[in-house]
Design a protein around this nucleic acid. Sequence first.
DNA 1: TGGAGTAGGCGTCAGGAGGT
DNA 2: ACCTCCTGACGCCTACTCCA
Length: 385
Amino acid sequence: MTMETVESQQDRSVTHSVAEHSSAHMQTGQMSVPTLAQGFSALTTVSVAGSGTGRGSPAVTLVQLPSGQTVQVQGVIQTPHPSVIQSPQIQTVQVATIAETDDSADSEVIDSHKRREILSRRPSYRKILNELSSDVPGIPKIEEEKSEEEGTPPNIATMAVPTSIYQTSTGQYTHFAIAQGGTIQISNPGSDGVQGLQALTMTNSGAPPPGATIVQYAAQSADGTQQFFVPGSQVVVQVHVSLAAKKGAVPLAAVHREFLDCQHFLISDAKRLSFCPTGLKNALCAATGDMPTYQIRAPTTALPQGVVMAASPGSLHSPQQLAEEATRKRELRLMKNREAAKECRRRKKEYVKCLESRVAVLEVQNKKLIEELETLKDICSPKTD
DNA sequence: TGGAGTAGGCGTCAGGAGGT
DNA sequence: ACCTCCTGACGCCTACTCCA
């Protein structure tokens, strides 16, 4: 018995779609995604008319055989499986990819800029995958970012871990953890974990005056209380520092500088951290819980203990201050973008994995359908012996 | 063993999408 | 209009493999 090709609108669309989608992600030349095209390559013509309209068509399909007979086919797939490519946004990409993968001269015409424009309109991987997930129960959703409110425990006692790692201006990495009772532990992991450990006991100073920008440190092992004014802050923070002065410990002044810088970061990124006016603890908890790695830079100007930084964004006058603020903003943006890029790559990998598993499933279904068709043809074709 | 090729990850930039 | 997020593109780096 000779093999015949099935030309099904549905199947062809699936075949193309998967292939195109694969090629769309093959642009980096790193992924090898099999296509369904292979599954149909050895077949010839049988008209198949879905009794529905393609998408969401019923499982029963009318198959017209070359002999003119029409048979009803009960598909193996009982429920319509949405293709990964059904999203209209993705189809936009597919069109572009068709032109790109075709050998026609048109593919040469599409310049990189245009292609980039088209590709850049793709929705986020999270969106695509979540659309998939809502249709196909087997596909796990990419977790949405926790809302800051959710991720912020109301009580400091619950936020002993995890530890955040900050990079100091000298390249050292510093663990920054909030322990029970509001103790902030700063330690240098480069050492044995004991050296350099410092504890900062933080207390909430209550309702701050509107627009207040005071960060106060009380160093138990140092003389007196230090006050720092942090630009843009909306909270008043009192931090009591009990320095576990051990060999190799970070100098207290350095801790102050870095911690102050951390505060500034938290404050300047208030939206992400949901920095609440009276809840620095919560904000810090959000920071230590959500944010993996951040770079802390020592202030460009020396910050002697006890000095008062009375600066706010609105009162930056000197070009140097403006430049520093611009530099700080830029570094913050780069830092965020760095994290975003990491996250994006992670999602992309997850998305590609999802596509690959989808292809595997579709290949199995394709195989079953072909077998089913063969069986039906055997049944319908007149016996020649 | 050293150079070439390849794969994968990272940081950055640019620009679109979407929210305010 | 402005801001933030997301992601493609690009360049760079590192690890690994292959081959002369």
